Amino acid sequence: MDNSKFYLLLWSLLSFWELGQIWLVQIVVYPLFAKVGEADYVGYHRFYTSRIPLVVILPGFASFLLPIALAFFGPAVPMWMTATNIAAGIVGLLVTVVLEIPRHGKLETSGKNETLIAELIRYNWPRTASITLQAAVTMFMLAHVLGG
C-alpha cells in the first residue's frame, strides 16, 4: 500500500472515531451537564475537562486540521471531496474555538448555568453536522480510492 492510501486509512479511522465521539457528546454528555446538581457542578465539570484531552480534544483538533495535509499527501480524489472535507474541518474548528471553549470555561469557573448548557448543546449542532459530513465524505473517498 502506498503512503497516500495509508494516510487515507489513518484519516478514516480518525474521522469515524470523531463521528462516534461527537454524537455521544451531543446526545448524551452535554445533556447530562444539566442533570448535575449546582453544588457539585464545578467539580463535575473539572473532572470532565481533565479526562477529555486524549480522547476528545486531541483527536478533535486533528480532525479539523488534517484534511489540509490529506489534500497534499493523500490519494487523488475529486476536488469537491477535498474542499468539503477542509471546509467542514474549518467549521468544526471555528465552532470549537469561538463558541464551545468559552462556554466550557464559564461553566468550569462560574458553575451550573442552564442558559450556557443550552447554548453549548445548540452551538454544538454545527460541529456535529460538520464532523458527520467529514465522515460521509471520507466514505466517498474510500470508495473512490479503494473501489477503483
Rank of each mutant, 00 (worst) to 15 (best):
D2P: 14
D2F: 07
F6V: 14
L8D: 03
L9P: 01
L9M: 14
S12F: 01
S12T: 15
S15F: 02
S15R: 05
E18Y: 06
L19S: 06
Q26H: 14
V29M: 07
V29H: 09
L32T: 13
F33Q: 06
K35A: 12
G37Q: 09
A39F: 07
D40K: 13
Y41I: 02
R46W: 08
R51Q: 14
P53N: 13
P53L: 12
P53Y: 05
P59N: 04
P59K: 04
G60S: 15
S63E: 09
F64I: 02
P67T: 10
P67W: 02
F72D: 07
F72I: 00
G74Q: 09
G74I: 09
A76F: 03
P78F: 00
P78Y: 00
M81K: 04
M81D: 02
L94R: 03
H104G: 07
T109L: 08
S110K: 15
G111S: 10
N113M: 08
E114G: 13
R122H: 03
Y123V: 05
P126K: 06
R127M: 02
R127H: 06
T128P: 00
I131S: 10
L133A: 10
Q134N: 15
A135E: 10
V137I: 14
M141G: 01
L142K: 00
V145E: 04
L146T: 01
L146Q: 03
G147W: 02
